[in-house]
Design a protein around this nucleic acid. Structure first.
Lengths: 341, 341
DNA sequence: CAGGATTATCGAAGCGCTTCGACGATCCCC
DNA sequence: GGGGATCGTCGAAGCGCTTCGATAATCCTG
């Protein structure tokens, strides 16, 4: 193992000088810097992470707590994790992977051991029990998701209320009058993360404003569950021509079922999905969708974390505005009996 | 921050005693142990990770290098990563997440900085450039995947040759005589990971042994590509009744296309998939498949890594035998003109 | 060109832990 | 009951780094 002392000897300077070359915390003459850098290069020196963490009280590690199993779509979790890791490297940080099932004990362990400089938490529940621990231990942290009480915390999330509203708007613009939101499973609304509820709120409010008649059904995403829900919706209000789907797994069944029931998409029925672009593009027809900006969330989370480490302790609710991309699953309602606004 | 010294003071013993209580490297009287544990508990002490790493030359961290984008199916990568993380915690280790795009520089950085005790690498290419670096830096490492030259390395992988053979066997047992393997994209066979080639080898060899006529086509997994390949196969050998698929994304198109062409699955045509159980169960009909044992691979990788840290430097090629689960997409060929062996 | 400010470097202390050697106390066996 | 093991504890050194003065050399400025 090559140490800083060896580099110093090789370069003919003192160890502290080498340290300052590395940290740029004091000015160093060009001449000395060159000698030191040459020595580092020729010896293949890498600072010992533990020693550095001990002396500087900074580990250069960000802890990322991901759900083992959750309501989130796995590729989205993965994309966020990768974005966090990639962005972290831009700041010279590494990423430690923790699972949510370590819960508050995990948070305590990391906060107490100085293993990480900050934490990034995913799959935030409305009343997440990790949050009080974060506050109590005063750990720099960023939440990906929005809890019920975000006071004093940094959060990043898609603006799901605006997302719901954007979907309603798009359908209204196309002349649809009767619309339905096929959402996440029951459980998601009750126990969990709030994003489903926020989408619904935004959707319903905007639908009302635009004079749409809106329905909503929770959906587990299986073929059977989707079939049952669709049947109920069409029975209750056969004039329904606009659908919003917020459950990736309900998308393929929904499209099959609409086809089966003879409702052509997009000619007679429009479908807007809230899903990653990849899913929207893979479907046939390609779906008009609001994408889940996974990469952007990961990147912002890291930036917020780094800002906190620089001293910006200010709370910040960082809601990413939705982007609705029109593709081939929505179209103006030709046969409507009146013109839309 | 609570230090070991504070714990020692509170417990009325020396710091070294506290250390020995924690590490169990020397015997401690029950009495003393209790006092120390009480102090640890009441102060909420957690050892400082950096200090520990510096003094003991062990970071208690495993580095896991995952592909950013690869031929692997994302949920499988995720499942492996989660299994690694969970299993690592059983050994008191944490997991550092690296991306494959850091390449050899990443390996050098980790090896040089003592940030991790061992590395676990995913998405191993046949001639992976990280391997020489691993050898040169003498870093404890486990590969998930099999390179061309695994000499001296610990590897974990599904036994893809046996997998191909098992698929051929199953179809032969059911009386199919003309079979086809719809594999990964061209690129996967040429540049990459070898698992596709190994499957093919096993499939072809066993097919020959069993007197089957076997075809093979690379498939990019899009609807168009799958359609083209299926058409070519059926044109060239219309008597083909058994299919093996090794590309998750080709599964839905293949099933649709077979249905469209009026070939009932499983009555007239059998389909065996090589994919995660989840995918097999989601399809309709549920697919007979050889599952990708993601969890098992992750677990074994951690165990092999830990064994190396205990001193077991022996190379080991750890091939997991395939398990073929019969579901609803394969059936005996009723109308065959002769009995199968 | 004297004297204060600035620049470049060094030495030493210390971060919190592990571990080695030492040492008294206790044990057991003949 | 004397002497070698064993047990339980302590003190101190040291892991490789950062950082705080201190100091010498160089720079301005009037």
């Amino acid at each position: 193992m090559v140490t800083l002392a060896e580099v110093a000897r090789q370069a003919g300077v003192s160890p502290s000088t080498v340290s300052y070359v590395l940290s740029r915390k004091r000015s160093i003459s060009d001449d000395t810097r060159r000698k030191v850098e040459a020595a580092i290069e020729s010896l293949g020196y890498h600072p010992h992470a533990g020693a550095r963490a001990l002396a500087s009280n900074r580990s250069n590690i960000l802890a990322l707590m991901v759900p083992l199993r959750s309501d989130m779509y796995v590729p989205v979790i993965m994309e966020i994790a990768m974005a966090v890791t990639t962005e972290a490297r831009e700041y010279g940080q590494d990423v430690l992977l923790l699972t949510k099932d370590e819960g508050t004990r995990g948070v305590r362990r990391i906060a107490g051991s100085g293993l990480a400089d900050a934490m990034i938490l995913m799959d935030i529940e409305l009343d997440d029990d990790r949050i009080p621990v974060l506050r109590e231990t005063d750990t720099p942290a960023v939440l990906i998701g929005l809890p019920a009480d975000p006071a004093g915390l940094a959060c990043v999330d898609l603006d799901f209320e605006a997302t719901g509203a954007a979907c309603a708007d798009h359908l209204a613009d196309l002349g649809h009058r009767d619309v339905a939101l096929i959402g996440e499973g029951e459980g998601v609304y009750q126990r969990h993360t709030g994003f489903a509820a926020r989408t619904l709120t935004g959707f319903q409010r905007r639908a009302a404003e635009r004079g749409l008649r809106a329905m909503h059904r929770a959906c587990e995403g299986t073929y059977e569950s989707t079939a049952g829900i669709l049947a109920r919706i069409l029975e209750e209000r056969p004039s329904t021509t606009g659908f919003v789907v917020q459950n990736e797994s309900a998308i393929p069944p929904l499209l099959s079922l609409l086809r089966l029931s003879g409702r052509a998409v997009p000619e007679e029925t429009s479908v807007v999905a809230i899903c990653p672009d990849q899913v929207a593009l893979q479907s046939s027809p390609r779906l008009t969708s609001v994408s889940i900006p996974a990469q952007e969330m990961g990147r912002r989370a890291v930036r917020l974390a780094m800002a906190q480490l620089e001293g910006d302790r200010a709370e910040s609710i960082n809601l990413i505005p939705p982007t609705l991309t029109v593709r081939d699953s929505t179209a103006a309602l030709a046969a409507a009996g009146f013109a839309a606004s």
